[in-house]
Amino acid sequence: MRYILITILAFLLMGASLEDARKANEAYNNGNYEEAITLYKKAIDEDPENAKLYYNLASAQAKAGNSQEAVRTFEQFKNMTDDEERRAMANYDIGNILAEQKQWDKAVEYYKKSLRYLSDDEDAKHNYELALKQQQQNQNQDQQQNQQNKNNQQQQDQNQQQKKNQQNQENNSQQNQDKQGQQGEQEQNQDQQPQQRQSQMTQAEAEQILKALEQKEKELMKEFKKQKVESTDNKNEKDW
C-alpha cells in the first residue's frame, strides 16, 4: 500500500505570502506537526478564503494522527475548490487515511473518486486495487464467520433438542415404570382380596360345621340318654 500524502510546498506558497503559513510549512517539513497545525489555523484566521491553507492543515492533521479531523478538513477543502486535480489529491489522501485504519469499504470509494478526476494516477490505481482486494477478503471472512456462527448455532440447537428428547425419553420411561409399579400393586391387591375373602369364607364354613357337629353331638347324647333310660326300665320289669 502506497500511503503517499501530497506535498504541501508545491502549491501553497505560490499564492500565499502569509508569515504564519511559511512558518507552518517549515514546522511541517521538520516533522513538528502539532506546531504546524496551530500555525495553519492561525493563517486561516487571517485568510479564511485560501483553500490551500485547508489542504495543508488537513495534511498536518493526518501526519499528527488526527484522522477524523483531517478527513473533515480535506472535505472542507474540496468544497472550496473547483480544481479537479486538487480534488483528486484530497480524495486520494482521504483514501490513504481510511486504508491505514483498515476501513476498506470507504477507502475503495475515495480511491474511485480520485480516479474519476485523475484516471492515470498510478498510485491511486495501485492503492485502489489493494484496498479492493482487502475489501473482498474481509467480505469472505465475514461470510465464513457468519456461516461458522450459523453452523455453531445449528449445532447448539441440535444438542439442545437431543438433550430435550433424551430428557423426555427418561421422563416417559420413569412414568411407564411408575405406571407398571402401580398396576403391579393393583394386581397384587386384587390377588390378595380373593384370598382374604376365601380365607374368611372358609372360617365361616368351619364355624358352621363346628356348630353342626356340636348340635349333632347334642342330639346323639340326647338319644343315648333316652335309650339308656328305656333300657333301665326294661330291666326293672324283668326283675319283677
Rank of each mutant, 00 (worst) to 15 (best):
Q147Y: 15
N91S: 11
I37K: 00
E230T: 12
D239C: 04
Q136A: 15
E84I: 07
N168S: 09
Q145R: 14
V71I: 15
E19C: 01
K226R: 06
T232C: 10
W240G: 05
T202W: 12
L13V: 03
K216R: 13
V108F: 00
L98K: 03
K235V: 04
Q144Y: 15
N138L: 11
A27P: 00
W240E: 06
Y28L: 02
L98M: 06
S231T: 08
A62F: 02
E129T: 10
M89Y: 12
V229I: 10
Q180M: 14
K23E: 02
Y117F: 13
A90T: 12
E170S: 12
L9G: 05
D233Y: 14
A60Q: 03
N127Y: 07
Y110D: 04
K163S: 07
K238E: 07
Q139R: 14
L57K: 02
L130I: 09
A27D: 00
L53I: 00
A124L: 03
G15I: 07
K150A: 15
N91R: 05
L13Y: 00
D45T: 06
Y54H: 06
K102D: 04
K164W: 04
P194I: 13
D191Y: 08
Q101L: 03
L220P: 00
D82N: 13
N171Y: 14
A88W: 02
K228E: 10
